[in-house]
């Protein structure tokens, strides 16, 4: 059964775009976390998805003891402390070593967090369903609808972006963080505690990732395999937007969400499921045609 083309069924098309943006905002948050770490420490964190997963599982445990919002913020807080500690004790020792070493370490984090989640919470899916704030009727304009949960995710994404923007552009801490990302030696010379800034950067990214994790589990059921695909989409988003551009991460995330939904609708079902394949093709295409992505800068290095 082939879906009707956009010019015959514009509502279906519009619906897919809207849902795509909603699901894409999740990828945008996780991509944002990846980009933040990559920008400030030159480390590509493959453990990001699993750290987010771990935080989501923690929030599930907290939820059995308290309301949604306390559980949400507690999980984020714990994730942030964990992220900062990881930077301090695991990543910093390899900061002077070749890129390979730091990638290998984050891969280690990936398996450790995935394994820990499986060990602590088991293989049974943990669904806590949409929390009551996100329940309720969908909002519809003519025939195009958007669920409360999707609105919620979008709003949360917007809030995170605004908060990060304010932090980075309008506080002394943000200034120090940006300086550290740009030139560590110079930052050290003007008295910025560079080590602490790196830890704070990781903590912030882990917190942002945790938000993505908790939000992702609002409509997916929570298993240890949940984050594999989400991480792939987040990487596709980060690559599409440019690995060192936060704006790019968000634009990339939303685009990937839309592309994924459109492919899911308009690729004939006889082909089989293609959602991962689409992300893969986006990554390959961008890397072949324009490795810096839409908003990234080309790195020029002095030998």
């Amino acid at each position: 059964m082939l879906a009707a083309p956009p010019w015959e069924d514009p509502d279906l098309f519009a619906q897919q775009i809207v849902s795509g943006i909603a699901s894409g905002s999740l990828f945008a948050i996780l991509a944002l976390a990846i980009v933040m770490i990559y920008r400030s420490t030159d480390v590509l964190n493959f453990g990001q998805g699993e750290m987010a997963l771990f935080a989501a599982f923690m929030s599930w445990t907290f939820l059995t003891r308290m309301d949604f919002w306390p559980a949400f913020f507690l999980a984020i807080l714990v994730a942030a402390v964990m992220g900062a500690a990881l930077e301090r004790f695991v990543l910093r020792p390899v900061s002077e070593a070749p890129v390979l070493n730091s990638i290998v370490v984050t891969l280690g984090l990936f398996v450790v967090f995935n394994g820990l989640s499986l060990w602590i919470w088991g293989s049974q899916p943990k669904g806590y369903g949409p929390f009551s704030v996100f329940k309720g009727d969908a909002t519809c304009v003519s025939d195009v609808c958007i669920g409360r949960l999707n609105i919620g995710i979008l709003v949360v994404t917007l809030i995170i972006m605004v908060l990060l923007y304010l932090l980075f552009q309008h506080t002394r801490l943000g200034l120090a963080l940006r300086a550290t990302a740009q030139n560590r030696t110079a930052s050290r010379l003007v008295g910025i505690p560079v080590g602490n800034m790196l830890s704070i950067g990781w903590g912030l990214a882990a917190a942002v990732g945790a938000v993505a994790g908790v939000m992702a589990t609002q409509n997916l059921s929570l298993t240890t395999g949940t984050m594999f695909a989400v991480l792939l989409f987040a990487f596709a988003a980060a690559v599409l937007g440019g690995l060192d551009s936060p704006v790019g991460a968000v634009v990339g995330g939303l685009s990937i969400g839309v592309i994924k939904n459109l492919a899911g609708t308009y690729v004939p079902p006889e082909v089989g499921s293609v959602d991962l394949l689409v992300a893969f093709l986006v990554i390959v295409l961008v890397l072949m045609v324009r490795p810096t992505g839409l908003f990234g800068r080309r790195a020029v290095r002095r030998v």
């Binding site: 990559y38 590509l44 493959f46 890129v99 390979l100 990638i103 594999f228 695909a229 792939l232 990487f235 596709a236 980060a238 690559v239 690995l243 991962l276 394949l277 992300a279 893969f280 990554i283 390959v284 890397l287 490795p291």
Partner: peptide, 16 residues
């Protein structure tokens, strides 16, 4: 492609 990009490309290959 340099290290991180290559890692992403090959990562996406095995997932897909």
């Amino acid at each position: 492609l340099s290290g991180p990009y290559l890692a992403i490309a090959t990562f996406s290959l095995i997932i897909t």
